[in-house]
Design a protein around this nucleic acid. Structure first.
Lengths: 290, 290
DNA sequence: CATTATTTTTATAAAATTACTACATAATGC
DNA sequence: GCATTATGTAGTAATTTTATAAAAATAATG
């Protein structure tokens, strides 16, 4: 797997800004020259920047080293990244007087950020285990309540293509009934944001008591996680910000995507033709691509 | 809007990826060496990269010029920006013999990439218009079929909190009935991946004929888009890769998030207390945070 | 308070690294 | 086999870095 790009919140530009006061005369001149037009600075040579700041070249070099760069070229690279990262909204919350463009961008970026976080924290081993369970399943049931109902529905829709009996339920009563009638070989996937919904925990216990495999897509540190056969942990960020939508649904959906893909891959080629057939059968209902 | 730097969607990395086939032997070696570890490439000197790609230095230089850089240093800067822009390894498809960790990562990254693409292409003006329509709505109906059913359901769940009559339907018959009975002041949001589902197009026409506002969250170049009052365009990436899940659902969900947030913001403070009450009322059904 | 010692800051110039150009050779296609 | 394109070699130009010296600032002493 390709090595990961580590830096994310490098923000060199912000760094320069904040350290402006603690710099000496010449170095401040350099800082000011850079801040005056940061993207132009990335195109300058050390000589050009020295001229623009009215200092000598080694001063610029020392300045760069001061910001823990190995030298001027390295500094320029970091500066370029800092500018491109220049999405100042990461981590910023939606404010009541944001313009549409602003809050749309903030929501998009925070969604992206939480997906990236999930990417790093998801345990491939647990994923593998869950995929194995799903392949062996005689029947799969996706349970989600409230905001997770749509995730369960989506999962049903995706797994329906696999020719396995699959259902999804969004009300506790039906879930409890299915759990009560579950057997060895059945898989129940519980999708819950907090993992602290009482009903969900009880349903998980009932299902396990009957020998069913219970998989939780939920907060790993939660009562629900403790009574599952296997858990796919999606750490829930705090739900404090009123205006910020919860991005957990989206992470859950992506986890479903991964599971579905895993099942497809493990099932092998002959199964692929089955998938293609389904795709074909849908074409009749559509306008042609012109 | 905060002085956002002319976000030229340079995406050099994507460029390199896509032009991989049209390169000659040596230049492809360079491209592959860069794609193998792009962030490392930003730290290389031209000599180091030449060695890594097993070609000569001028070849690297020519390669850089081929991507309209003035030279190697300029190329490195652009590469650094492209990496920081947060569109990491795109275009890497899931292969049948990927490990779980590998394909999980690929799916996550491609989802992130398509979200970022959507971020850049979404039209804030259209968003604003749609938000205004939603605020004025007497009733909102979310229609989604097949894979979009879960998105519609999610939207219903979100907008339910706004105290507006809101419904969602996933079967064409019910949708058609609602459309037939629609009135001026009603808003119908049609969610469709391709925008070429015959049923959806007809339903849109019926609803508009009755004076309802029809909003499409769909492919902007589609029959459906043409008969809507307002369109939020989400350009659909090709559905050619068998193993790659469609990320459009996730983009659609995020668009719903943005719309819901927009409605909340425009509704103002007094409305906020209403939202808080709903959140409170949910706590009783949960285990405490210990 | 002036003067000198010490430290810090800054610049000059030389050394080293890095990138580029011109040209030659090899490979490819007609 | 000739024309064209592709690639590499070697030398040159450029840029950056280091070493070192001068200047400025600060502190210390008479």
């Amino acid at each position: 797997m390709a090595a990961n790009h580590a830096h994310r919140d490098d923000n060199l530009l912000e760094d320069i800004q904040s350290r402006l006061d603690s710099l000496n005369k010449s170095e401040r001149k350099v800082a000011e020259a850079i801040l005056r037009d940061p993207s132009a600075a990335t195109r300058y040579s050390i000589a050009a920047l020295a001229r623009a700041a009215d200092v000598s070249e080694p001063t610029v070099n020392r300045f760069c080293r001061g910001f823990s760069a190995t030298g001027f070229p390295d500094f320029k690279i970091r500066l370029a990244q800092s500018i491109a990262t220049g999405t100042p909204y990461v981590g910023q919350n939606v404010e009541p007087d944001d313009t549409v463009a602003e809050f749309a961008d903030k929501i998009m970026l925070s969604t992206i950020a939480s997906l990236d976080k999930a990417r790093q924290s998801l345990d491939p081993k647990a994923l593998g285990t869950v995929i194995d369970y799903l392949i062996q399943a005689k029947q799969i049931n996706f349970f989600g309540m409230g905001g997770s109902a749509s995730v369960a529905l989506d999962a049903q829709h995706k797994f329906f293509r696999f020719n396995i009996p699959v259902t999804s339920y969004d009300d506790a009563l039906m879930q409890r009934m299915v759990a009560a009638g579950a057997q060895v070989g059945d898989v129940i996937v519980l999708i819950s944001y907090t993992g602290r919904t009482k009903e969900a925990v009880e349903i998980a216990k009932v299902a396990r008591a009957n020998g069913a495999t219970v998989i939780g897509i939920t907060n790993p540190e939660s009562p629900l996680a403790e009574c599952c056969t296997a858990v796919l942990g999606v750490t829930a960020p705090e739900d404090t910000e009123v205006y910020m939508p919860m991005s957990s649904r989206i992470i859950h959906l992506t986890v479903i995507d991964i599971l579905a893909t895993g099942v497809t891959l493990k099932r092998g080629k002959d199964f692929l033709s089955h998938l293609k057939k389904i795709k074909e059968s849908l074409k009749a209902t559509r306008y042609p691509l012109e």
